[in-house]
Amino acid sequence: MGGMSATAIQLSVRNVSKSFHGKAGEVRVLDDLSFDIHQRDFVSIIGPSGCGKTTIFNIIAGLIEADAGTMQHHGEPIGSLRGRVGYMMQKDLLFPWRTVLGNVLLGLETRGIGRDAAEAKARQYLKSFGLTGFENVYPKTLSGGMRQRVALIRTLIMDPDILLLDEPFSALDYQTRLYLEGVLKEAVETYHKTVILVTHDIDEAVALSKRVVVLSGRPARVKVVHDIDIAAHSPIAARADHRFSGYFHQLCAELDIQTEKTT
C-alpha cells in the first residue's frame, strides 16, 4: 500500500520450514513461510493458537534451527539474530536472585560492558521508565505490570535490532495491559525500534501495529498482511479512531474463515 513502498526491508524471512518430532510422529509447524519486516516496522502476527508463532521467534533469535529456508538482515544473509534481538515473553523471566538493577544489567553483562558504564546507563533507563527507587528491590516484591516494565527495560537497554515480543502482556489485567501498551509504543518511537509482536489479542494488534500478519493454521503460512493506517499517538487513542473497528472486524473475519476451513 501507498506509504509503505519507500520503507526499506530490514529482515526478510524466506521459505522457512520447521518440523518437530513428537510422540505422534513428525509435526510440520512451519511450511515454506516467508515474510518481510521493514525498518522501524511494528508488525503483529496473529493466528490460531499452536500455529507456530513462537517457533518463528525461536528461529529468528537463534534458539532453534530451521530445517530449510533463509533469512536476510539488511540484505545480508544471516543464520539468526542471536545476541541482536530483544526477546520478551508472557513470563517476565526476571531472574529472582537479581535486583531490578541487576536484571536490567543482565544483557550488558553478557556483552562484557564495563560495570560503571553499564550501571549508569541502567539507572538512566530506570529513571525514564519511572522506576527510580526500585533499583535494589527483588522482583518478587513487584507487581506483574512493574515486573514486565523491568523486562521491557532489560530488552531495550541492549539496543537490539529487533524486538521479539511473544504475548508480553497477556498475563496482565486489562488496565495494566493498556498502560504497558502505551509505554511500549512510546519507547519504540523514542528508541526507533523495529518490533514483531505475537499476540492473540486482535484489539491489541490493531491498536499498536503498522501492519498485521495473519497466519493460517498448522503448518503456518502467511494468509494475508493488513496495513493498519491509524496515525494515533497512543494505543488508547488508536482504539477511538473511526477506522479501528473496521480493521478489527476484518481481522476477526480473516481468523474465522480460517478456523472454519481448518476444523
Binding site: L63, R82, Y87, K91, L93, L106, T110, M158
Partner: peptide, 23 residues
C-alpha cells in the same frame, strides 16, 4: 526459559552456567 533468554542475548555456555544455572 531463563537460559533461552540469555542465549538470545548472545550469552555463551559459561555465561548461561554462571548467570542462570549456578544461582
Amino acid at each position: 526459559d531463563l537460559q533461552s533468554l540469555l542465549i538470545s542475548m548472545g550469552a555463551d555456555k559459561h555465561q548461561v552456567f554462571f548467570k542462570a544455572v549456578v544461582p
